[in-house]
C-alpha cells in the first residue's frame, strides 16, 4: 500500500477538490493511503512530516520566499521530494508554474517553468510524472497514482492521457470538419475554433474522452477550451480566436498550414444543409 503525501504550494486548491470528485475514490483509498491531504482524513501537517511515504503529490507552484506550515516552502519541497520514491506534479501550477506565475515570475513547477526546465529538473526528472490541467482531472491523478512507469511525452505527461487533443471526442466535430463556426455563444451548433477562441485542436488532453465529472466537458457545454494543460497557459484574449487575415494563428496539432488551408477551402465550398441550421427545430 503506497503512502502518499499531498503537498500544496502556491495554489487555489482546485486540484485537491477535483481529486475528491473521483467517483471511485473509496476504492482507490483501499490501495493507497494519504498521510497528508488538504481535505481528506489524514495526519496533521507537522505529524505527517515525520512519516515515511512513497509518493509525493505536489499541487501548486514553488517559490523560495514563501511558507507552508511555518516552514520555508522550497526547503520543504526539496526535503520531501528527495525522500519520495515518486513525485506526481498535479495541476498546471505544479507542472509549469501556472496562472500565478503571471503575477510572480519566480514561481515555477517541479520540472518546468513554462516551457523551460526548472532548476529542480535534473534532480527529480527520473521520478516525476506531470499531470497538468487547471485543474487536473481526477481520473488522470488516479492514473498517475497507480501506474508507475507510463510512457511520457516531452513534458513528462503520460501519453495515454495526453497524446490526444481535447478536440478528440468533441461533440462539435462535424462542425469542425465542415468549417461551420458557432454563430454565437449559447448554441449547441457550431465549432468554437474559428471565432470563440477554442484551443482544443492543439491542446493535449483527454477531456472529451474521459469526461469531466463523468458527464461533460467545456466544449460540450459551449465553452471554448483554454489550453490549460499546456505550458503557455494562461494566455490572453481567451474568448477570441487569434487570426492573421482570418486564418487561425495556430493550426490543429501536427497539421501543416498548407494541408489545413487546402482542406478548409474545399470544406467551405460546400454548404451542408444539416449543419447550417439548428439541430432541433421547434
Amino acid at each position: 500500500m503506497d503512502r502518499v503525501f499531498w503537498l500544496q504550494g502556491i495554489t487555489c486548491n482546485g486540484n485537491s477538490h477535483s481529486f475528491v470528485n473521483l467517483s471511485t475514490l473509496p476504492a482507490l483509498l483501499k490501495n493507497i493511503e494519504f498521510i497528508y491531504h488538504p481535505l481528506l482524513e489524514s495526519l496533521s501537517f507537522s505529524k505527517a512530516l515525520e512519516q515515511n511515504f512513497d509518493i509525493l503529490i505536489v499541487e501548486g507552484g514553488i517559490k523560495r520566499d514563501w511558507q507552508r506550515g511555518g516552514v520555508e516552502f522550497e526547503k520543504l519541497f526539496l526535503e520531501l521530494a528527495s525522500k519520495a520514491k515518486r513525485i506526481i506534479a498535479v495541476g498546471s501550477c505544479a507542472v509549469y508554474g501556472g496562472i500565478f506565475k503571471e503575477y510572480d515570475k519566480e514561481i515555477c513547477g517541479v520540472l518546468f517553468a513554462k516551457e523551460e526546465k526548472s532548476h529542480y529538473f535534473e534532480k527529480f526528472k527520473d521520478k516525476t510524472i506531470n499531470i497538468p490541467g487547471c485543474p487536473a482531472h481526477p481520473e488522470w491523478i488516479a492514473y498517475a497514482l497507480i501506474y508507475q512507469k507510463p510512457h511520457l511525452d516531452d513534458y513528462f505527461r503520460p501519453k495515454e492521457l495526453f497524446a490526444y487533443t481535447v478536440h478528440a471526442g468533441c461533440t462539435r466535430n462535424e462542425y469542425f470538419e465542415w468549417k461551420v463556426d458557432a454563430k454565437s455563444f449559447g448554441l449547441k451548433e457550431g465549432c468554437l475554433f474559428y471565432e470563440q477562441g477554442c484551443q482544443a485542436p492543439y491542446t493535449h488532453g483527454s477531456c472529451n474522452k474521459i469526461l469531466w465529472n463523468e458527464v461533460a466537458s467545456k466544449t460540450r457545454v459551449g465553452t471554448p477550451c483554454f489550453g490549460c494543460t499546456e505550458p503557455d497557459f494562461i494566455q490572453r484574449d481567451l474568448f477570441q480566436t487569434k487570426t492573421f487575415m482570418s486564418i487561425p494563428a495556430k493550426m490543429p496539432l501536427g497539421v501543416p498550414k498548407r494541408a489545413y488551408l487546402t482542406l478548409t477551402g474545399v470544406a467551405k465550398s460546400f454548404r451542408i444543409e444539416r449543419l447550417s441550421k439548428r439541430l432541433i427545430d421547434d
Binding site: 487570426t243 492573421f244 487575415m245 482570418s246 486564418i247 494563428a249 498550414k257 498548407r258 488551408l261 487546402t262 477551402g265 474545399v266 467551405k268 465550398s269 460546400f270
Partner: peptide, 30 residues
Amino acid sequence: GMICVSPFVTEIMIFFEEGVRSGELRDQDF
C-alpha cells in the same frame, strides 16, 4: 466554391497569413 482554385488560393492565403504574422501587413478580413 474554392475547390478548383484551391491550390492557388491556398498559397495566397499563406502569403497573407505570414505577412500579417510577421507584422508587415495589416490584419483584416481575408
